[in-house]
Nucleic acid binder design. Structure first.
Lengths: 334, 334
DNA sequence: ATGAAAGCGCTAACAT
DNA sequence: ATGTTAGCGCTTTCAT
């Protein structure tokens, strides 16, 4: 493998000059630069970024700590869309992505921070991490620049990207009320997700504002899983036949609710209206198709990467980016 | 940031001893090792893998060259499932993944090989690359260990993982024949995909074996895209009303065909039977649900990573892994 | 069992 | 405009 030393020898100059020429410094004679570039091409030279990283103390890599990159996670392409966004943003920069593959057993031996420090990533994006994850706190407290997806925390080195979940939930519930529903249940995710807390808040706010009564028995957690949501909904709708509409904190759970309604012999949307959250691919293909609050998942990832790179390059701005949501009306609330 | 030098100073030993102790060499006094480990923990030491890579000439990273990691690619979770498999396999090893983010404009300036050499990845997995991609040849000809997903090429440093596409196609078409169909069309992907060539081969073989006639006009390319397949199918089914069944080289195209049949006022499966390929999530949610040939995409990725790591560690075996397919019968061929 | 010294490929003062 | 030198943090001969 060719090194700048080889080039220097062949071109009859010092390694310093080679380094400067190849890195586009101005204080290099035009002729010399040309000669060096020629030789570099001739010898099929590729710079060694590892060596460069060592001396520069910058690796030009972004670490990715993403949950649900396992056999389970494939059901839902939320994570993938975020990933695509991150990928596209970093493709526009000179950063590459390091995907930290970590299993739960490995995680107990080596913390996120260790992972990041060992690989010397310049910054890290966290996605799909629960708020009570012990390592979240660790990363946030470390001095590694870090952007969180859907966890609003901010500091000198920590930024976040999220959608306005309170607002999104309000849109969903307001839509149900507009459709004439009074007894609106909610299937939420779990308490360890910030989005769940906010979507619940939005749900309650609208009901309060619109003076629509709600009951705490109508609110259940479905753990963001289709199957769990289905079971919970079966119970809920059987025990509380007064419910005519369900707001779900994710489309996957919405799909579960669709199945549940079907199983208890009722019809969507005539007997029970259902609205989800996210707008995953399946939502429009479900039967009936699922109304939902669209989040631009791609943009979520894109903006996360842009924000992190901005932070890394010292382009200071706010460390928070909020992305719009959009109400998508389909058959399940018609 | 703590280095082994710091540890050496505090522990009162040389850096050599620290290195040996921390790397588990046997020729270190038990007491000394303990002391060093203590100090390392005290100083919150993390090894610098960049420095290690430089001297060892091994980065313990695997490069990923994946297509469709952009806004377009999100429709189809094939890539994501493969990625999850790769991720899980590398999580079981001590390799991390480097996702090369490259745009088409960037690609013209810097080739895959350059990318790999600059980042000093130990090996690379290619996924979703067309067979006429100029860089494919380049990577294959380079000495970088490489595993291809769905492109059967093999050499000293090149391996591949794929499913048996001829066999898969045969299963699909045999199933249609069994259902009584005689006039079976095929919507293929494109010629630049090895899987398309093989699936076409399987289609022809079964028809020949079973003495079912076929016409070249019944075979069209849909470029693996839902919309294109829909348009092509509209034309095909209108011009050739004798066709009663369509074999599609991907589920996404199968979905397009479902729409086309609907648009021309016919019914699936009564008038036209449709079978896809892949078994993506949407297939089971479509209406009618789509029969298909299931590929274990997760396993495809998993085995690709395992194979590459085996190659990197010198565990020599065959460089080819073939994965099973499975016929999934749903409503679209009932 | 431990240490001294060299060197991986590169950048960056600091000369000249 | 170019070269000399040191050093990034680590591993690895080669001594002792």
């Amino acid at each position: 493998m060719t090194t700048i030393k080889d080039i220097a020898r062949v071109a009859g100059v010092s390694v310093t000059t080679v380094s400067r020429a190849l890195n586009g410094y101005s204080d290099v004679n035009k002729k010399t630069r040309q000669r060096i570039e020629e030789v570099a091409k001739e010898l099929n030279y590729s710079p060694n970024t590892v060596a460069r990283s060592l001396v520069m103390k910058k690796s030009k890599t972004i670490g990715l700590l993403v949950s649900d990159m396992n056999r389970e996670g494939v059901k839902d392409n939320f994570t993938f869309e975020v990933l695509c966004g991150i990928n596209e943003a970093s493709a526009n920069s000179d950063y590459d992505l390091v995907l930290f593959s970590t299993t739960s057993s490995k995680q107990s031996q080596k913390t996120y921070t260790q992972l990041c420090r060992e690989r010397r990533v310049d910054g890290v994006i966290l996605q799909g991490i629960k708020t009570d994850d012990p390592y979240l706190q660790e990363v946030v407290e470390s001095d590694i620049p870090c952007v969180l997806v859907d966890i609003p925390q901010e500091s000198e080195t920590v930024g976040y990207v999220t959608t306005d979940n309170v607002e999104g939930a309000k849109k969903a519930v307001a839509h149900l009320i507009e459709r004439g529903h009074k007894n609106i249940a909610m299937i939420n995710g779990h308490e360890k997700a910030d989005v769940s807390i906010r979507r619940l808040q939005g749900y309650m706010e609208v009901l309060n504002n619109e003076k629509v009564p709600y009951r705490s028995e109508w609110i259940k957690n479905g753990d963001f899983k289709e199957k769990v949501a289905e079971e919970v909904a079966m119970e809920l709708l059987t025990e509380h036949p007064e419910i005519t509409a369900v707001f779900c904190a994710s489309d996957l759970m919405g799909l579960g609710v669709l199945k549940a309604v079907n199983k208890i012999g009722k019809k969507v949307p005539d007997d029970i209206a259902v609205i989800g959250y996210d707008d995953i691919m399946l939502a429009s293909y479900a039967n009936p198709s699922l109304s939902t609050i669209r989040q631009d998942k791609f943009k979520l990832g894109f903006e996360a990467a842009v924000l992190l790179i901005d932070m890394l390059e010292g382009r200071e701005q706010s460390h928070a980016r909020i992305i719009d949501t959009e109400l998508i009306i389909r058959e399940s609330t018609k």
